[in-house]
């Protein structure tokens, strides 16, 4: 110690370290008070009866897994496939030397990133009005894939664009110098590397889509086509208990938390590999 900080610290009686301690202690006390208030105010008997009704939960479980979770996964996967393909197409269009392609792609991305996904799902049922006689193939499954695909494509396009830009220019040059056409070089060299680079954000997009699949409930689905959110909601009204909604929520977490963890791990691994 050179003695420089001593006069500063003692100027107002409290050293900076004392003040930090006091502030942190105050925050702990506040947190404890809020927790105690919540515990005191909550009706534990009612909570156990409504939210943790094991009988209701057990009754729903078989169909939760055999129908609701399965359908949620189908909606998510098919929407992801549509979004992946359309997103890649949009990303390539944004880089195109054909100006109208670039305009179309950026307009699409702006619009679909700016709209709530719910609005798109509400519109999908009206598509036949614009194209008389047109039906989305696959019924609700097709409509769900289209709706989720249209939404996620806009986000994936931006992700792919970042990935394509991250591939060093020399890769394209090397491919062209070997006599590959531009298209061949994109397909064999640039796109595979770009996709590899963006696997972590693509995994996050899968998590988002898994949650957005709950919007399928607005398409008007039958009992066989039910997904997690609607299943929970229907069961809740049947049994007049919020427990099924809680179970549905936990089922979402069962998938989203591990996936999010995988995405973060992939990101870390890429961070160290570079």
């Amino acid at each position: 110690m050179t003695g420089h900080s001593a006069p500063l610290a003692s100027r107002r009686g409290w050293s900076p370290r004392d003040r930090r301690r006091l502030s942190r202690g105050g925050q702990y006390v506040l947190l404890a008070a809020v927790a105690a208030a919540l515990v005191y105010l909550a009706d534990w008997g009612a909570i156990r009866q409504s939210f943790l009704n094991t009988q209701v939960a057990a009754d729903g479980l078989p169909r939760l897994f055999s129908a609701a979770l399965k359908n949620t996964m189908i909606y998510t996967a098919s929407g992801y496939v549509v979004g992946f393909a359309l997103g890649m197409l949009l990303a390539l269009m944004r880089q195109s030397s054909v100006a109208p392609y670039r305009w179309i792609a950026s307009t699409y991305i702006e619009i679909f990133r700016g709209l709530p996904a719910l609005v798109i799902f509400l519109m999908i049922g009206s598509l036949p009005l614009a194209f008389p006689g047109f039906q989305v193939p696959g019924g609700v499954y097709g409509q769900a894939a289209l709706g989720l695909g249209l939404v996620s494509a806009a986000y994936m396009a931006e992700t792919f664009r970042a990935g394509l830009q991250a591939v060093p220019k020399g890769q394209m040059e090397a491919a062209r110098s070997l006599g590959m056409t531009h298209t061949r070089a994109m397909l064999s060299i640039v796109i595979p590397q770009a996709v590899r680079i963006v696997i972590p954000p693509l995994t996050n997009e899968l998590v988002l889509l898994f949650k957005d699949s709950s919007l399928v409930l607005f398409l008007g689905v039958t009992a066989a086509q039910v997904e997690l959110a609607k299943f929970g909601n229907d069961q809740a009204s049947t049994f007049a208990s919020p427990t099924p909604i809680l179970v549905s929520g936990l089922t979402y977490l069962l998938i989203t938390i591990p996936l999010g963890y995988v995405a973060r791990r992939l990101e870390q691994r890429q961070g160290t590999a570079r």
Partner: peptide, 29 residues
């Protein structure tokens, strides 16, 4: 592209295809 097929090019930064094995780098074109 037909002309480039007959010209080999070696770059300062190597520019090997980083997602492919050495063998695949040499076979793909």
């Amino acid at each position: 592209d037909a002309v480039r097929r007959r010209l080999g090019m070696v770059f300062q930064q190597f520019n090997l295809f980083s997602h492919l094995t050495v063998l695949r780098n040499v076979t793909i074109a």
